[in-house]
Each structure stands twice: as C-alpha cells, then as structure tokens.
Write a protein that binds this DNA or RNA. Structure first.
Length: 289
DNA sequence: TTTAATGT
C-alpha cells in the first residue's frame, strides 16, 4: 500500500498553529506592556496625558517615561512639548548636588549638553530639579538633567521669573493644597509670526512657556501661567495668569482629555485665583537676584 | 538648610 500523501492543507496546519501561537504571545506581551505603561502614565498624570486637538505633521510626538515625570517629545521640533509630574508635601526637603546634564539617547536627534553653548540661551528645566528631587528622590533628580527635559530659555526668565514660579509652587502652593498635578511646556511661534523656526542647533526656540497647576479631586481647581522669553524677571507672577483654554489655543494641545466635558468647561475656561494665596507671593524676590 | 546657570 503506498504511503498516504499528506495534503497541502494538512502540511499547512502545523505552520498555522505555530503562527497563531506567536500572534497570541505577541498580543499577550503587548497587552501586558500596554497595561503596565498605562499604570505608569496614570501615576504621573491626571485625567490622561496631553493629546492633540487635531492631528498634523507637527503634532507627531511620543511619550518618554522617566523616574518621577513624563515627557511628550517631538522629533519635528526637536523639543519637549510637555512634561507631566506630581508634587506632594514632604518633610525633609534636603536634596543632593546638581547632577551633570546628559544626552537622552531616546531622542535620536543629537541634543547634547553643549548644544546651547554660546547661544545666549540657558538650558532651562521643564520638570524642575529641586521640586522633583525633593518629592521623588535622587534617581528622578538625575532624570531631570536629561537634555530631553531642556528648553532654550533667556537667562532673565530661567533664573528669575520662572525660578520664582518654581519656588512658589513647591514652597507655598504644595504645603497649602497638599498635592499638585503639574504640566509645563513651550509655546512656539505660529508660522506667520516673526521669529518662526528660530533654532539653537536643531532645537526650536520657543517664544513663551506655560505651566498648569491642578489640585486633583472631586472639585478640581486649576491655576495656569504663560510667560514670554522677554521678561526682566521681577514682574509680579499674577500678571501672567491665563486660562487653560488659552494655553490650548496657543499650543494645539488638549489637556486632561479624560475629564468630562462639563467639568472641563469649568476648569479650563475660567481664571479662578481664589484660594491660592497668589497675591501674597507674587512679588517675592528670586533666590539669585 | 540655596531650589538657576554660565564661563573661567
């Protein structure tokens, strides 16, 4: 009796079974990755990480995970578009020495610690050294010195006005409200404004910077600022208060995308400075004056 | 008790 010839279909079956198993493993693996990634992101943001109002080539960006904060990185701008982190009241706030600036190899474009040399711009932290170190520890502090966390800032902004805001946030607001969600980032010129596409090396230079503070909870409260590059540094902080809607109009981002529309209208459309004690701290001198 | 950073 001649051996039974195996049909093409039956020969295919083991192969398909193997392929199915591989697909299953990939699905489970990426599912686990996704669940873990979402858990980390949820711990470093509130009501979802910033999203886009409309998708354009300029709005391509990816989320970089760090110890203590997240970065929305744009390979088009060669710049962070936002950072997201949480601050909580801590007792002993002594922190370690300033670590050195480091290249972030995830950015692909070579942005190195000397990329701003001789440009007249400071390497300004978006996620701040001091507050992140005080709340999240030494490893997180080191991560704030990644070049993917830097934006070109004029010295009078970085060392004076912006520094005063960072100091007020961690020293005054956090003890007052208990915990804060913070989102900060750059504002770029529109294509038609003067100074559009001004770069330091590969890095696009912003015209201004925003910082959004939210007290999470059933009745969340927000305080938001936009500060331009050109400041003297001793302006009162309350001069720069804006609504979150204003920052969304300037950046094209959608902040807190998981927040229900009715709550978003209230939180993002209004400027409500009551309860922050802003007037009392708006004119405090900076540390380096 | 020093939280910003450059240039020397």
């Amino acid at each position: 009796m001649p051996p039974r010839r195996r049909s093409a279909v039956s020969r295919l079956r083991p192969l398909m079974r193997r392929a199915a198993i591989a697909v299953l493993f990939a699905a489970v693996g990426s599912g686990l990755w996704y669940a873990e990634e979402r858990e980390v992101r949820d711990g470093l943001s509130w009501m979802g990480v910033p999203d886009w109002q409309r998708l354009t080539p300029l709005s391509l960006h990816r989320v970089l995970r760090n110890d203590g904060y997240l970065v929305g990185w744009s390979d088009v701008r060669v710049s962070p578009l936002w950072v997201s982190y949480r601050l909580a009241a801590v007792g002993d706030a002594r922190i370690g020495e300033r670590p050195g600036f480091r290249r972030d190899w995830r950015t692909l474009w070579p942005v190195t610690p000397d990329s701003y040399l001789g440009s007249g711009y400071d390497r300004g932290h978006l996620a701040p050294n001091y507050a992140i170190a005080a709340v999240h520890g030494r490893g997180a502090q080191r991560d704030t010195f990644l070049m993917s966390n830097m934006v070109p800032q004029r010295p009078s902004l970085n060392r004076r006005l912006w520094q005063r805001l960072e100091e007020v946030v961690i020293d005054r607001f956090v003890p007052r409200v208990g915990a804060l969600q913070v989102i900060a980032g750059p504002v770029f010129a529109s294509r038609f404004q003067q100074g559009a596409l001004h770069r330091v090396g590969l890095v696009e230079v912003p015209v201004a910077f925003y910082k959004i503070l939210v007290v999470p909870g059933a009745r969340p409260r927000a305080l938001a600022f936009v500060m331009p590059q050109a400041v003297s540094g001793d302006e009162p902080l309350d001069r720069f208060v804006v609504s979150i809607d204003r920052i969304e109009a300037l950046t094209g981002l959608d902040f807190f995308p998981h927040l229900p529309a009715a709550a978003a209208d209230v939180l993002e459309g209004r400027v409500e400075t009551d309860g922050w004690g802003l007037e009392a701290v708006a004119r405090l001198p900076g540390r380096f004056d």
